[in-house]
Design a protein around this nucleic acid. Structure first.
Length: 591
DNA sequence: CAGCGCTACCACACCCC
DNA sequence: GGTGTGGTAGCG
């Protein structure tokens, strides 16, 4: 034990001395680029939190993907890149064979399903018919609960079946509609399939896998909110309009309750004969990994492909191939903000209860409901509150939504209605404050139909220093600069001298997105063939970004700035998505 | 050196009748 | 015996 410790200590000292001999170049030297091409972003991380922290610090629109790399134990590493760059390397299907989208917690996303049953245990089951019936039921539910119209033509239907197992993914391509996050999707799915739980519970008490409510109805509970619409004229809560909407909902609910749908087609048996549902409810958890279109599980051959009975066909585009369109459609968290987008929510009854209690306990204070209407960025919430607390009017945050692609936080404001467009407060329409985390600016839009019609967007104002990522990072850099290990960054592609070859490879993987030539070369290297087989583009598992930073950020360079992800991990803004277990500072939303 | 986020299950403590 | 709690194996 002691010897091990001494060896570690010696290793650290050696490394420290190396960094002293090779101090960090103070000047930022951009990498040589062929033309005006956007820079490559291709980074691998062992830890999901590090990957998300890197995303936060990246100016470009990047996403986290999980790659399986070890047969058997399902171990994964995390890749951060753009959709376009991933597709560039991914499309040939010679590499990156086992990729998963990480559906970021708290991010707006599409409605999706994972469906499966054992064919041997359910020989009479007609999978295609079950899918069609499910889609029909879901569309009906969307119509009745949210007034959202859709059909089987809006459902991207992916098949991953084998001889043993029927397996599908459904990704709903709703028009200008999405869910607040995948937890809300899960609540919605559980809600609309509750009669099926009853079916299992009544027939077989041993295999209840989900707790159920006591009411036996079609869609047992109306969501507490119907989702704000960024387009509709709305939404003074508790006043005339929302009351009108609520009574409409009541009508929908009542008509739904008159007849209970037959969901018996959802009941299947597992390989030991226990009853289960065709729908997998385990896929609605935070940061869920969801297998990509054309990826297979490691150790298996079968990839997700367009199902025979798929009825969704993406729009033709000049610039984007059909396959790429399918790929983009399959991505659950690929939802961009737009003025006309509606965000659906679906709370559990427990959360509703909490919300009511919270509201009752704080309403006398006429304050915001702390803890519920807070985003995972408390500093930014506070700043937004300060923006809407002027001229004796204390506005509040009614709700927030997060759009991962643009890193955009959209705050719906209550009480405070001052609109820059008309130079006064709106009489009946609320405003929005949008915080663009990428560009560190905020601006105002509003729900007023006239302002919307002219696509009004206020001027952009910089976020104040205290909530700016740059500021926090700079402080942290100054703090750590003296004691941080430096390395030679003269050429990002050239590993620091004096390190082991293993470290050298690490550095290359650490610092660069492979360009096409690199990629081909790497993939053809016989020694790396196995790793390539695992889909790692020739960067074997041990060549990943280590937890310790080897390069230090170069001031002014967005990409290099980002490599400080390790230093960032304890900063407040880094706790979104949720930070790792050890920090435990993340405010988790109820539920 | 190295995944993550759950849920079901178990052991145990504590309480009450 | 009922209920709450804390740890963990194992699943997706």
């Amino acid at each position: 034990m002691e010897r091990k410790w001494e060896a570690k200590l010696k290793q650290i000292e050696e490394r420290a001395s190396h960094y002293e001999r090779n101090p960090l170049s103070p000047v930022y030297r951009p990498r040589l680029s062929k033309s005006e091409e956007p820079p490559s972003i291709w980074k691998l991380f062992h830890r999901q939190t590090h990957a998300f922290n890197f995303v936060k610090s990246c100016k470009e629109e990047v996403h986290v993907f999980a790659l399986e790399y070890k047969v058997g134990d399902g171990q994964r590493i995390y890749l951060v890149t753009t959709y376009a760059e991933l597709w560039f390397y991914y499309k040939s299907r010679k590499n990156l064979l086992h990729c998963y989208e990480v559906i970021p917690e708290n991010a707006v996303c599409k409605l999706y399903f994972d469906l499966e049953f054992n064919k041997l245990a359910n020989q009479e089951a007609d999978g295609k018919k079950m899918v069609a019936l499910l889609i029909e039921h879901v569309c009906k539910a969307l119509q009745e609960l949210y007034g959202v119209h859709c059909s089987a033509e809006d459902v991207f239907n992916l098949d991953s079946s084998t001889d043993e197992k029927f397996s599908r993914h459904l990704i709903f391509q709703l028009h200008d509609v999405a869910f607040k996050d995948n937890i809300h999707v899960g609540n919605f799915v559980r809600k609309i399939l509750q009669p099926a739980f009853h079916l299992i519970a009544s027939e077989d008490d041993d295999s209840i896998s989900e707790t159920t409510g006591h009411r036996f109805s079609h869609f047992p509970e109306t969501p507490i909110k119907q989702g704000i619409s960024f387009s509709e004229m709305s939404s003074d809560e508790g006043r005339g309009e929302s009351r009108t909407r609520n009574s409409k909902e009541q009508e929908r609910l009542e008509s739904a309750e008159q007849s209970s749908p037959d969901l018996s087609f959802l009941v299947v048996k597992n390989n030991v004969g226990e009853k289960h549902l065709f729908v997998d409810f385990g896929v609605y958890t935070r940061n869920r990994n969801f297998r990509l279109y054309k990826s297979s599980k490691i150790g298996k051959q079968v990839a997700l492909e367009v199902a025979e009975d798929n009825k969704f066909f993406p729009k033709q585009s000049k610039n984007i191939s059909e396959e790429n369109q399918y790929f983009l459609s399959s991505l659950v968290s690929n939802v961009r903000f737009s003025d006309t987008l509606r965000i659906l929510t679906c709370d559990t009854s427990q959360n509703k209860q909490k919300r009511v209690e919270c509201f009752n306990s704080t309403r006398t204070k006429a304050e915001n409901i702390e803890g519920y209407n807070c985003s995972p960025y408390p500093e930014i919430d506070q700043f937004v509150r300060s923006l809407v607390d002027k001229n004796g009017i204390k506005g509040g945050i009614r709700r927030w939504s997060y759009f991962f692609p643009e890193e955009l936080l959209v705050y719906d404001i209550c009480k405070y209605r001052w609109c820059e467009n008309i130079g006064r407060a709106h009489k009946s329409n609320n405003i929005m404050i949008l915080v663009d985390l990428k560009n560190e600016v905020w601006y105002q839009k509003c729900h007023d139909p006239v302002c919307k019609a002219e696509n009004f967007k206020s001027a952009c104002f910089p976020l104040p220093a205290e909530v700016s990522l740059l500021f926090l990072l700079k402080e942290e850099e100054e703090f750590t600069a003296a004691e941080t290990m430096n390395s030679d960054t003269q050429n990002p592609h050239e590993p620091p001298s004096g390190l082991s070859s293993k470290d050298a490879i690490s550095d290359a993987a650490w610092d660069s997105g492979l360009d096409e030539a690199d990629f081909v070369e790497a993939a053809e290297d016989a020694e790396l063939a196995e790793a390539a087989e695992c889909g790692l583009l020739g960067t074997a598992a041990e060549t990943l970004v280590p937890d310790e930073p080897i390069t230090q950020p170069r001031p002014g360079c967005a990409r290099c700035r980002a490599t400080a992800e390790v230093w960032m991990k304890d900063l407040p803004f880094a706790h979104f998505p949720r930070s790792n277990k050890t920090s435990g500072k993340m405010i988790r939303m109820p539920g």
